[in-house]
Design a protein around this nucleic acid. Structure first.
Ligand SMILES: [Mn+2]
Ligand SMILES: [Mn+2]
Ligand SMILES: [Mn+2]
Ligand SMILES: [Mn+2]
Lengths: 225, 225
DNA sequence: AATACAAGTTAGTACGTACTAACATTATTG
DNA sequence: CAATAATGTTAGTACGTACTAACTTGTATT
């Protein structure tokens, strides 16, 4: 099992994570998409991707993008598990705010052993979602990672429960937190201004007017029916 | 304060830690001493040391060794604090054994933010020593790091309380644990065989015969004043 | 003091990672 | 379809880190 495992670098691990995320909602991961998420130049991605291919973690279609191999996907899911368990632990046990925890986890995920992660998960009773509502892959590498509709997909009058939200921008998370929009909360789309205009959303008794950009980053679970 | 701080790499941080430790018990840190503790070639140390000097963290006396600058010492103590707080937290909150915790801390120390460390320390009530009895530097950078005698320094008949022990070798820690030798325990030197022979030590009601190598790695606090 | 050995440094190589600039390919669109 | 724009790759550079081999310096021994 896992014969000459070469011990991946932290960057390689981050590449695999973002490739997984990009690929998950669509086609092969494009060079620029990877570059954007990692805040590096596309040329740098070409180089790293070659190395990942050499290690059998991705398959490259030149000028087309990359896809994870099963091995690459295993590593990616492992990293995502680490990240999300860490976030959960830091929030529930060490008082981190959900808006500040991502960066810390982004670094710790590369240093924490699988054993530490399992201990943290166990200490929390093996949670299934992280503080942002994202599903936590299990130690065996499985996940329930359904594609979810986004708040912006609701029709006027429809309602849904907030399932999860992007965790990468602390300011967005603080904003959503102020509006009372967090995983588990029920929302109803009250109105939508024309031409991709702002949405009016009911959160409990409150009404909030939010932009489309925000409404695209909040994932919901269809409620009625 | 801390103007153009260049963000040290993890390796640089480890170098500073070992330079601190070597220098603390003696002269300027010799190239080979650093190389040995880090398990790298002496030539590699020469290179890194130049870089550390360029960053104002050490002062090099060519062919003689290096010394930490005040800035370098500050970083070193910060790293040692991180390491020891992490060890303490992992042992008391996540069930790590004292013999297995060092390696985990050795990696996490470079990824954990000062904020995380302070949160962990606070969660434990700001402990002053780690699981191996080593003093934990305070957040302000101060420590009580007294030079301690070692079990091997005791005269026959003398006793002392175990203060701390080297944490680097898990096998040694397990061995000491089996003998009941851990921080806080009172020992008495019952006998010493001639020519650097083994020592007979009383631990509670038990007697153990241990080698000089081991007796050199157990630090004690002189008891009978 | 001359010699020998230990300790330390330099030179040259390698690899991972990132960058910019220049070139190549694919997609879009008039 | 041809021109243009967007996307992607290669070449060349840089830096950190480590290695080995060869050379230099300092210390100990005869
Ligand atoms: Mn996150
Ligand atoms: Mn990361
Ligand atoms: Mn340790
Ligand atoms: Mn370390």
């Amino acid at each position: 099992m896992t014969p000459g495992r070469a011990a991946l670098t932290g960057q390689a691990e981050d590449y695999l994570k973002v490739i997984y995320e990009i690929e998950r909602d669509g086609e092969a991961a494009a060079t620029t998409a990877i570059a954007e998420r990692l805040h590096i130049a596309p040329a740098s991605v070409s180089g790293m991707v070659r190395r990942l291919a050499r290690q059998g973690l991705v398959v490259v279609e030149r000028y087309r993008g990359v896809r994870l191999t099963p091995k690459g996907r295993r590593v990616a899911l492992q990293m995502i598990r680490r990240h999300r368990v860490l976030e959960s632990y830091l929030v529930t046990r060490l008082g981190y705010g959900w808006d500040g925890v991502h960066d810390e986890a982004e670094r710790l995920e590369h240093a924490a052993s699988p054993d530490l992660i399992d201990r943290m998960a166990a200490a929390l009773g093996d949670p299934t979602v992280d503080p942002h509502g994202a599903p936590i892959p299990r130690a065996d590498g499985t996940v329930d990672d359904a594609r979810l509709p986004v708040l912006n997909d609701l029709a006027v009058g429809e309602q849904g429960r907030v399932a999860r939200m992007s965790d990468r921008d602390p300011a967005l998370l603080r904003y959503l937190g102020e509006l009372g929009i967090r995983p588990g909360v029920t929302l109803r789309l009250v109105d939508r201004a024309p031409f991709d205009g702002p949405l009016t959303v009911a959160v409990g008794r409150a009404r909030h007017v939010i932009g489309v950009t925000v409404a695209t980053r909040v994932y919901i679970r269809d409620d009625r029916r």
